[in-house]
């Protein structure tokens, strides 16, 4: 008599996943469908995840609520969108003057990072796992050059999040502009500057045609995406599916970092050849120092009122000290020395 052994009696599971991005917005929209494919294939089609882009659920910035509420078992988003719900969530995306993607991954997986992330998100009854990374984001497009701190005073800029708070402290006129009106506003000078992501995504917005100065990054050195999972739904999964899901999440997260690196490298090559007038700029040291100082003040103010924020902040700062030494010895010196002999 043939009786399926319990291990083979595969349980059928069908989940829904909501993304913050429209389905076409690669590479941000890449990890979730890839995850669904891997999970389905690894479970012989028994664990299916249906992925809805923002065009379907129409609630791009409500992913956390929807996963918590069980409308979707999973979500793909970025942690810092929940800054208004819990300020500590910002650390699981990226913070100004924070870690690089190498450092951040090491912190998440081999230090306290992921443990802290789970702790922060436990109050929402969801799990949050790393879900891809954009790498260093660019500092934004400026219509005029920033030569000194004075040039920042009264500058009208669209820049959200902690970076916005830092800039506001330096006298920047931080403005909210709906994404649908960013292009027109920058074009007409309603705003003088804006930050978006990096070449791979910026090129579609066409900002390079209307603002000549492209500043290098300082505020989002390694923006992590996140997978959110409804706690109850995850805990109910068979152990094997949990492992499949976790493994697949790690795989697609690593994949997105490579995908975006590739997209940005290629997009930048195109931009450079088609628009040789784009000027890549770094903020002057005086400005960067002031930004760093303002940032420290912002972070310490939050840490003073919020013990959990302080815990994660301290953990990151402590780890960064160690990790940065090694980053310098390894990556930075390698780049510097090889660049030097290339000249």
């Amino acid at each position: 008599v043939l009786i399926a052994s319990p291990a083979l009696a595969a349980e059928k599971v069908r989940w829904k996943l909501a993304m913050t991005w429209p389905s076409t917005l690669t590479p941000l929209a890449s990890p979730a469908p890839k995850l669904a494919k891997i999970v389905s294939e690894m479970t012989d089609g028994n664990f299916e995840i249906k992925v809805d882009g923002a065009e379907k659920h129409k609630a791009a910035l409500e992913i956390l609520d929807m996963v918590k509420g069980g409308q979707f078992e999973m979500g793909h988003s970025a942690s810092y969108y929940w800054k208004g719900k819990d300020i500590t969530t910002v650390f699981f995306t990226s913070v100004p003057f924070g870690m690089t993607s190498d450092e951040q991954n090491a912190w998440l997986w081999y230090d306290d990072g992921q443990k802290l992330q789970e702790k922060v998100y436990s109050k929402f009854n969801v799990y949050s796992f790393p879900g891809g990374n954009t790498g260093v984001q660019m500092g934004g497009w400026f219509r005029k050059e920033i030569k000194s701190l004075d040039d920042l005073k009264g500058l009208k800029m669209r820049i959200p999040g902690l970076a916005g708070e830092v800039f506001a402290k330096l006298g920047v006129n931080v403005t909210n502009i709906a994404p649908g009106e960013m292009y027109t506003s920058l074009d007409r000078g309603t705003i003088d500057a804006l930050e978006w992501v990096g070449p791979g995504m910026d090129i579609k917005m066409g900002f390079h045609k209307i603002a000549p100065y492209y500043y290098t990054g300082w505020h989002e050195p390694a923006s992590d995406m996140q997978f959110l999972i409804n706690k109850e739904a995850f805990d109910k999964l068979p152990k094997s599916y949990q492992t499949v899901l976790k493994t697949a999440m790690q795989a697609v997260a690593a994949d997105m970092l490579s995908e975006n690196f590739d997209a940005s490298a290629k997009a930048w090559e195109v931009m450079k050849s088609e628009h040789p007038n784009i000027k890549v700029m770094t903020f002057p040291p005086e400005v960067l120092k002031a930004m760093k100082k303002a940032n420290d003040e912002v972070m310490e103010a939050y840490a003073a009122q919020n013990p959990e924020f302080k815990e994660v902040y301290d953990s990151q700062q402590k780890y960064m000290k160690k990790a940065r030494e090694w980053s310098k010895m390894s990556t930075q010196y390698y780049l510097e020395t090889t660049e030097a002999i290339a000249k």
């Binding site: 609520d65 918590k68 509420g69 969108y81 929940w82 800054k83 208004g84 719900k85 819990d86 109050k123 929402f124 959200p160 999040g161 902690l162 916005g164 708070e165 506001a168 931080v174 909210n176």
Partner: peptide, 23 residues
């Protein structure tokens, strides 16, 4: 109702710098 209650429980505020509290 849940949507509002969730927001109330965590004292949700604006996600923008200098935005309005009491979301």
């Amino acid at each position: 109702l849940d949507f509002v209650q969730d927001s109330y429980k965590i004292k949700e505020i604006s996600e923008n710098p200098g935005g309005l509290p009491y979301r």
